[in-house]
């Protein structure tokens, strides 16, 4: 790929990603009163993250088994702790150890 087409692609990708974030943010000046829209906006981030996680996360590691165990560990830890770092590190370690054990069997 030559530099010209790289920069054109970059412009389309970065430009569209920026505008889709910035335009609604910059233009919504009023507080929304409508209960349905307010409720929708409250639920949307959690719905997005849930749909992004399942089932894609199961295929993120070397095997479905290690990913499932890692996700299970993340869910367990996040019941007890609100620390994103702790949950993330626990999940990574669990996946790593599970894959080590699996390679031995």
């Amino acid at each position: 790929m030559d530099n010209r087409s790289f920069f054109l692609y970059l412009l389309v990708m970065a430009g569209s990603t920026y505008l889709i974030r910035a335009i609604p943010f910059a233009l919504m000046r009023k507080k929304i009163k409508n209960t349905f829209i307010r409720s929708f906006l409250y639920y949307i981030p959690y719905a997005v993250l849930s749909a992004m996680t399942f089932p894609s996360a199961l295929y993120a590691t070397g095997s479905v088994i290690s990913a499932a165990i890692g996700l299970g560990a993340a869910i367990l830890v996040s019941f007890k702790s609100k620390s994103l770092t702790l949950v993330a590190i626990t999940a990574c370690l669990t996946v790593f150890l599970t894959e080590c054990v699996m390679s031995l069997i």
Binding site: L49, A60, S78, A91
Partner: peptide, 28 residues
């Protein structure tokens, strides 16, 4: 094995964001 383990991090973070409020609120 190391790069695979690192790839679960982003999803674990999603879980950590969703679980605490969801366990308090049945509607969520």
């Amino acid at each position: 094995s190391l790069t695979g383990a690192l790839c679960i991090a982003i999803y674990a973070m999603f879980v950590a964001i969703v679980v605490p409020p969801a366990k308090e609120d049945r509607r969520l």
